[in-house]
Design a protein around this nucleic acid. Structure first.
Lengths: 210, 210
DNA sequence: AAAAATATACCGAAAAACCAGTAGAAATAA
DNA sequence: TTATTTCTACTGGTTTTTCGGTATATTTTT
């Protein structure tokens, strides 16, 4: 079994200490460095040879964990990112996964869980700790305001409006009268209770309809 | 080991057939039903005793898989949802996880992978097939456009525009001239390369600036 | 102290959006 | 087959945005 190079990025010395100890007990893992700021680590990554996995905190003194994660994936796409964070909000977990993280642990995860997740991630899988999994799979009480029902044509027009097209230009492409497009626009505004196009597009974006 | 009740929801008979065969070979899994439409399954779920896991297709003849998933989690939060789909777009995978799915497989996944994922999900973990994991962890190329730098005032005006306010009304509240607000608006459009307010708001929403 | 960025302000003309109606044709659902 | 929804189209007018400039005062940064 080859040795995997691992880096820890966290601004809490005690956390770094704890993680280090746990990692050192694993003979297939080697700590290539520990850093307390995002920029310090990124500078290192630019110069470094292959790094297999980064244990990354989200709250860092200089730059946000999301940015660090994006940079890592840009500089070194094969380097896995395992988030170790205190944030248990679903949206933050989603955001990190969205930006290329391979796993997410809360800091209260057990040492067995940490080691399992590191190995899972190195094996190419996505690894979430039990608690994170629970957060991700529990039902959303976040019932948004009910989304108005839009017709196909309305959705089509909505997207063309959001693309910055004028009614005339949309009418032209759809081979209908400009009045028709304006009627659609008006109906859309009414359905979203929007007083103008700007508010309409904001609402539509909120409901992820674009 | 107790037997887990499993349901298949897919409108492709061949897929149902294939899944059934694979599941039947597992002695800890019992097929409690197969359905070809979302509504048929949901009616069943309302009457049924405990269902442990649902293998769910996204594209169904009647209602969308997202809706089915949301309903399942509402009706029966402990029922796990494993998506089996042809859609390999990152956004769709994210959307399903966002709405409570515990796993995601592409239909070309191997049978070993399917069985592994079912068991992982039943064990309370999140399970993604290798290909889905690859999609989720690969670098995003749509992060290219760098976010334009906005001033505090611009962000303020931007949000008021998005709220549907006119330049005049914004000027009034901020106690500045309407011309000033219009200049801010123009600068915002230029920074986002937007030809009008609609495009501006869409861009701003995309960058989560609202 | 000089330079750059930010916030402010103005004008005029053209383009586009918005308002308040109405209403027929076509497609879909009951 | 009705009934309903959706898509279409129009009139006439008002408001708002958009485009093209220009320009000064105030912060902030170098």
């Amino acid at each position: 079994m080859s040795v995997n190079k691992l880096v820890i990025v966290d601004d809490h010395p005690i956390v770094v200490q704890g993680l280090s100890t746990l990692i050192q007990a694993e003979e297939d893992l080697h700590i290539a460095g520990t850093f307390t700021t995002g920029n310090a680590f990124l500078s290192f990554l630019k110069e470094a040879e292959r790094i297999d996995i980064v244990l990354l905190d989200i709250t860092l003194p200089d730059i946000n964990g999301v940015e660090v994660c994006k940079e890592i994936k840009k500089l070194s796409p094969d380097t896995k990112v395992l988030i170790i964070s205190n944030h248990s909000e679903r949206s933050i977990i989603m955001q990190m996964l969205q930006h290329g993280a391979s796993g997410y642990l809360l800091k209260n995860a057990s040492s067995e869980e940490l080691v399992r997740c590191v190995h899972d991630v190195l094996a190419g899988r996505i690894a979430l700790s039990a608690e994170v999994t629970a957060i991700m799979t529990r039902p959303l009480q976040n019932e948004l305001k009910d989304i108005p029902h839009l017709t196909k044509r309305e959705i089509q027009v909505l997207n063309m409006i959001a693309a910055g097209r004028t009614s005339a230009s949309i009418a032209d492409e759809l081979c209908v009268s400009q009045f028709t497009v304006e009627t659609h626009r008006r109906n859309l505004m009414q359905k979203f209770d929007a007083s103008n196009t700007a508010a309409l597009i904001k609402m539509a974006a909120e409901q992820k309809l674009l």
